[in-house]
Design a protein around this nucleic acid. Structure first.
Lengths: 344, 344
DNA sequence: TCCTTTATACTCGTTTTGAGCATATATGGG
DNA sequence: CCCATATATGCTCAAAACGAGTATAAAGGA
């Protein structure tokens, strides 16, 4: 760290204690770039994870791919990310978007005891590549493996009524302070759509954070140094606070779907409207009304028919469509303002 | 930087060149936290800026307040930010939200020649404090001083037709590659609402980036090492790439307004509906239809009347309202889905 | 009193949305 | 060939939301 940089930073920090221009300040920071790389295949949203040997047992543990940011090599953070992802995963990334910068002490099991603080800049990336094409260490996982309560496509996931709702209720009730108790109930109701509140598929992160606070995901025990009971933790855990980054990515993608035509980054060049709908549903985790979806997509000018028909399907052949790139030049915020429907 | 952290980061980077566990890697990184601190007073959105002596001339130069993140002192980035802001500005921050992490080489005039790369994590913070209360170095500036083309409340800003539109058109036309020329025109039309495209008040960052690319803001000349003509640059410049951070903050706040009740962080405990509307208008920079705004706010359950009436105003006294906190517990995303109207 | 100013109630046509019905066209089994 | 089944696609219909007003109320000042 240069003296110049420290000095500059302290221009507005006259009272700050560490204004000494010593060459190596006691605190140091490492920047990691973490990637939520998503693809959709057979109506399933996949996220790329890397297997890592657990420090203690030989248990399999998974985490998001990440790599250090090297300021000497890369002009921007995004370039750094794209470079190492494409080098290591052999994937071509289409859409890339910065998610959030995470730097909580105590929510990381790597470097936690070292003298260096790790700051993770999370990125969301979309790719159309087939799951087979990736490098050996990499695995594609259905993202609902980490968030089983987020898939409402067929029905409300049983885990909610069987485990999440009762345990969260208990957690709220065991609080003695009535104000906090009320807040816990309110958050639970709002996040998980209790008492007639609607299920908001975008609140992936809020739900995960609530479960973390209530100690229902095993990262919570791990971060407190408590013994981890694999069976009790909801969903599969990830190393460090990477499940939080994944939750952020899922929520962001679900939200972005509605006002930007990002789904097409996940679609083949030609597709049927049902293909498209299934992809949107896979990501958003809710079921959509077919006819209204079609109306939205066609009236919004997002696609154009190719004139050709599919043959493979069981029923009447569907027309094949392609994305209308021109829509990006015509409308300010084209997307699917999807709202989940009861049943078809 | 510890060897351990480097090693951990390289688990997924076997091919990476700097896998040596040397104690001090050649590249180092400093994290700065920059704050876009906003308040609204007399129908004007103010942002807190700090005066800094320019390196060359004695010219006054302004930038956002920022300070280093000290990983030893603070558990999270947000805590770090809140701490130094409250220490140095004597302001109480209400709402705080992370914006984006900026780390482009060459868009910073500080530390650019040093051997340390500065990564800025931008934050948006809202406060209700009166502009007078801040510390000596700090100044509140109308944010439209930096973005004069963003204030459409009274009329379309003249700067658009007089300078921005013609110069952007020229910039697009002087491109010889027809594909790129088309893209430049498309972006211009979309960002600035040409040819009947609507003005989207949320695209603050996109517009700034376009002006930067076209060389119409003086940061663009500065970053290329060209002489800076104060008169030609649009809006007032800021040091480093802080006007970009401000643009991000403005856009984010304008967008957030629509689905979260954040305006109330900027309002006194009791206010009239016109007060509220003027505050929303000040931020979003567009004029709203009074009766429809009222309908939205009241039907949405965002406020409740106190029964008392104002006296100060010219015309008929207005009822005073307060924010209904309960709405946060009732609805998933309460806010103002405002759409600008022609004229009242 | 009348004029100006702001507040507030109400209307009205249009668009958007949610939900469903009806019909068309394929497949595979008898 | 006819039928059950599956998917595709066209169309309706009522409710809600939206955009743009008009009309009336209640204050102060000339």
């Amino acid at each position: 760290m240069s003296a110049k940089a420290v000095k500059t930073s302290n221009k507005t920090n006259k009272e700050q204690s560490d204004a000494s221009d010593g060459p190596a300040p006691q605190h140091s920071v490492v920047i990691d770039l973490s990637a939520v790389i998503v693809t959709v295949e057979s109506e399933t949203p996949f996220v790329l994870v890397v297997e890592r040997k657990d420090a203690k047992g030989g248990k399999k543990s998974y985490g998001l791919p990440f790599g250090p940011f090297d300021p000497d090599l890369h002009r921007t953070l995004e370039i750094g990310l794209r470079t190492w992802v494409e080098e290591q995963t052999y994937l071509h990334l289409g859409y890339v978007e910065q998610l959030y910068t995470f730097g909580d002490r105590g929510r990381s099991d790597i470097g936690a005891s070292g003298d260096s603080r790790i700051i993770s800049v999370g990125y969301l990336a979309l790719t159309r590549e087939a799951p087979e094409l990736s490098a050996p260490d990499n695995v594609w996982h259905n993202w609902y493996r980490y968030f089983p309560w987020e898939d409402w496509r067929d029905h409300k996931p049983e885990i909610l009524e069987e485990r999440i709702e009762p345990t969260l209720g208990q957690w709220a009730d065991e609080e003695t302070d009535n104000v906090i108790k009320q807040q816990r109930w309110d958050r639970t109701r709002l996040c998980f759509g209790l008492d007639g509140m609607p299920w908001d598929e975008e609140k992936v992160l809020e739900r995960y954070e609530l479960l973390y606070e209530a100690g229902l995901v095993s990262e919570a025990q791990r971060d407190q140094g408590l013994p981890v009971d694999e069976e009790r933790g909801l969903g599969q855990a990830m190393m460090s606070d990477q499940r939080r980054i994944l939750a952020t990515g899922m929520g962001r993608l679900r939200s972005k779907l509605k006002y930007r035509p990002v789904v097409f980054e996940l679609m083949p060049p030609v597709f049927t409207l049902l293909n498209l709908q299934r992809t949107v549903e896979a990501i958003s985790g809710v079921h959509l009304h077919k006819q209204n979806f079609r109306r939205l997509v066609e009236k919004g000018g997002l696609v154009e028919g190719t004139g050709k028909k599919t043959t493979q399907t069981a029923g009447r052949p569907a027309e094949e469509f392609r994305f209308r790139w021109e829509v990006m030049r015509e409308r300010p915020a084209p997307g699917f303002r999807v709202r989940s429907s009861s049943r078809s």
